[in-house]
Design a protein around this nucleic acid. Structure first.
Lengths: 245, 245
DNA sequence: AACAGTTTTAAACGATTGTATTAAACGGAG
DNA sequence: CTCCGTTTAATACAATCGTTTAAAACTGTT
């Protein structure tokens, strides 16, 4: 714990802002490597090499590798979750104003769109959704704790508003439908524009292969799924006709 | 590469079957540790210690750690995918027999049920679905290659049959809906019975908290999602009334 | 009992990991 | 210029990684 909090706090750089540059370069390199290799596999040596800084720079600026991961996530997930919460509360306020219950579709869109829109934000942020999609399933406890802490307010509000939008559906049922939404979105962030899936049934990006199309598909899928009547599909495999339409 | 294929091939053990026991103990320990720690983080020392065998046993029986992961996956995913393919072909044959198109609901059930049913198969296999759910998002290339190779036949048949069950839906659209199905299922395998999510909006396991309930929820959600009309939810955010129902 | 093949053991290998240390280079203020 | 706080640099550290080696222990057969 020797040099605790050695990060610069005086902030009186003026000329080249080199310190802020180094931090940013490290964050960018770490984001890219965490996305492609995972948290554990991305070594501090690889990160510092890619960032063009010295090996010790990570410990100097962030303390340790775990704090770096937290900073990487915070940089993107902070504004992203703020946008989500703002939009969700806006939706709820709008519904209150006209004395109606919250509508499910804009809620799902408010949750998913900000994340996927990062994908076409030219800069280095484009890689974060995939990184986050990975992190959701990362076995590392460090990753899980960081993600869970940052997502908790969003999770709570989403569960509350989905519950309101789905009257008569039990809390447990709402919980699971929200999990399915998360799963579908997380999968999308990892598959979209991933060269591994090129040609695996997906020939061209298509005439409308942009992120907006993907968001529409996700919202359409999860909206119908979350509104589905439960238990309709139990034990009707043999006697009924195969299709109706 | 020194001792290539040093695995026992003569198979003339008779008394205690100790060799097969060691292999099985290693597979069980590796399965549990891969599930909880991930492929990279689960060291061969931890695996062999948990299995109660010598450190060198993994290299002796499997060659290296990567081959061990492949064996772990093969042991569960082999029979599992066989069951899936058998059921899917059965469904298709049944549809052909009556001259109709394949129905989507049994297709989704045939894909998801065998995997989730492992969760309540008392033995060590119960941990595999979560392991597989993780592996789907694992950043490690080794993991991805193994999973992709084993899943390819299932993926191909699923895409084909979902395409048949969804006439008029483009191949690209079918591809994405299948990805959403995979994502929802993968998320379910990792959340179900995970102590981390206990109390996060899910108070009790509920009176019907078994795997069958989860499967029904998944099938219900993904069936409605995959059958949803696409693009219905575009551009209706501002001018229309906040809610209609 | 002596042998041959299989399995288990203890020890060590080189490589890589995250972090700590210590000194050198930098840059504006006095 | 000199000084001082900040940043960079090279190097070393202990720990752990997957794998290899060679000898010991065990097995059933002759």
């Amino acid at each position: 714990m020797g040099r605790q909090a050695a990060a610069p706090e005086s902030r009186k750089l003026s000329a080249g802002e080199t310190a802020e540059d180094a931090r940013t370069h490290i964050l960018d390199a770490a984001e890219a490597l965490f996305e492609n290799e995972g948290y554990r596999a991305a070594s501090v040596r690889a990160i510092t090499a890619k960032a063009g800084v010295n090996l010790a720079a990570i410990n100097y600026y962030f303390g340790n590798k775990e704090a770096l991961l937290e900073a990487v996530c915070q940089r993107r997930l902070g504004p992203l979750n703020e946008a989500r919460l703002r939009k969700l509360k806006e939706i709820r306020a709008g519904a209150r104003r006209v004395g109606r219950k919250v509508e499910l579709q804009p809620v799902l869109r408010a949750f998913m769109a900000p994340a996927l829109l990062l994908k076409e934000s030219g800069g280095s942020a484009a890689g974060f959704p995939a990184l986050f999609g990975r992190a959701l399933a990362d076995p590392d406890d460090t990753v899980q704790r960081i993600i869970f802490k940052m997502m908790k307010p969003v999770h709570q509000l989403m569960l509350e508003m989905m519950g309101e939008a789905l009257p008569g559906v039990s809390r447990e049922e709402v919980f699971w439908r929200y999990q399915f939404v998360i799963g579908a979105m997380a999968r999308a962030t990892r598959v979209y524009k991933n060269p591994r899936f090129r040609g695996a049934g997906l020939e061209d990006p298509g005439p409308e292969g942009g992120v907006n199309t993907l968001i529409d598909r996700l919202v359409s899928f999860t909206l119908a799924g979350a509104q589905a009547a439960p238990g309709m599909n139990i034990k009707c495999k043999k006697n009924s006709a195969p299709e109706s339409i």
